[in-house]
């Protein structure tokens, strides 16, 4: 059960290409991150999945049972002059869903004591929680969240991300989440798509979270040869005089391989391969 995009493109005003031949999959029960610079096409992609944008080229398919999508895109949407209770009741009545589910959302998002207040008097974080509650009120099969923790305090962020992760695992909801806080995305996503200029340029998989990277700094003279020697290793990237070599197992093997070719790095650092590294490597390599 999944939502799949195949060669999906979207052009605004017949000229402005927002998405270009995007292939994308979101399965039920998994959390997929979407990262990229402003204007990369994240919001357009989310709007297409949510059914807000309906004119596009390519194929969007919902496989298996269930195709309802709840969304929080750009910023939370609500009637500001009405109470939180009114807003929730309004969309609850439109989308349906059982009351038990409804009460659980209110409780889990810590909103119970705020429901009587007008939404315009809420803090930014509380408005964000309301936005998430409204996205969840339809008991959706998929959830699309654009910067869901915007304006929340650190405790709130941890609480909300934990709750969303539980929703994916326990209720089997497929969650697509975007944020500029890469740590948040990394902590909760099974996979992360990197999007730039309307194209998905790479995918960061869960198993990469545990992968380690050797950062080797070479002198100008050795750099070219080192790059040639390290071609044997998959995913080697360069940033200035630093070569990053993903490895699994023994780092000594990499160093031995270099020394056999009379290559000795000036500096050696061993670190975990983070989404942040992955993201910037991809952005830099795309820029070249």
């Amino acid at each position: 059960m999944s939502v799949e995009m195949h060669k999906l493109s979207k052009t605004f005003n017949r000229q402005e290409l927002a998405l270009s031949e995007v292939d994308f999959t979101l399965r039920k029960g998994e959390v997929v991150g979407l990262v990229g610079p402003n204007g990369a096409g994240k919001t357009t992609l989310m709007k297409i999945i949510s059914g807000i944008i309906v004119q596009y080229d390519g194929v969007l398919t919902f496989r298996g049972e269930g195709r309802s999508v709840g969304s929080l895109i750009e910023k939370p949407k609500y009637f500001p002059n009405k109470s939180g209770r009114y807003n929730i009741d309004y969309f609850h009545s439109l989308f349906g869903g059982d009351d038990e589910h409804f009460d659980e959302i209110i409780e889990s998002l810590g909103m119970a004591s705020y429901l009587k207040k007008k939404v315009k008097d809420y803090s930014l974080g509380m408005k964000q929680r309301l936005g998430i509650a409204l996205a969840l009120i339809s008991n959706p099969d998929y959830l699309v969240l654009d910067e869901p923790t915007n304006g929340m305090d650190p405790d709130g962020i941890r609480h909300i991300l934990g709750y969303l992760k539980r929703l994916a695992k326990e209720k089997g909801i497929g969650i697509l989440i975007s944020s500029h806080i890469l740590e948040d995305i990394e902590s909760m996503s099974d996979r992360v798509y990197v999007i730039k200029e309307g194209r998905i340029i790479n995918e960061y998989a869960r198993d990469q979270h545990d992968r380690e990277v050797l950062e080797l700094t070479f002198s100008e003279g050795d750099l070219h040869q080192a790059l040639h020697v390290l071609e044997a290793y998959e995913g080697v990237t360069r940033s200035g005089q630093i070569l990053s070599v993903p490895f699994a197992g023994d780092m000594k093997q990499v160093l031995k391989h270099l020394s056999q070719n009379d290559l000795f790095p000036i500096d050696v650092k061993r670190k975990k391969d983070t989404l942040e590294d992955f993201y910037f490597q991809n952005m830099e390599s795309e820029a070249k």
């Binding site: 949510s50 807000i52 969304s71 895109i73 750009e74 949407k77 009637f79 500001p80 409204l134």
Partner: peptide
């Protein structure tokens, strides 16, 4: 209010 985004999903 942008509530179109919640109302117009189907």
């Amino acid at each position: 209010y942008g509530t179109i985004y919640l109302l117009f999903t189907s």
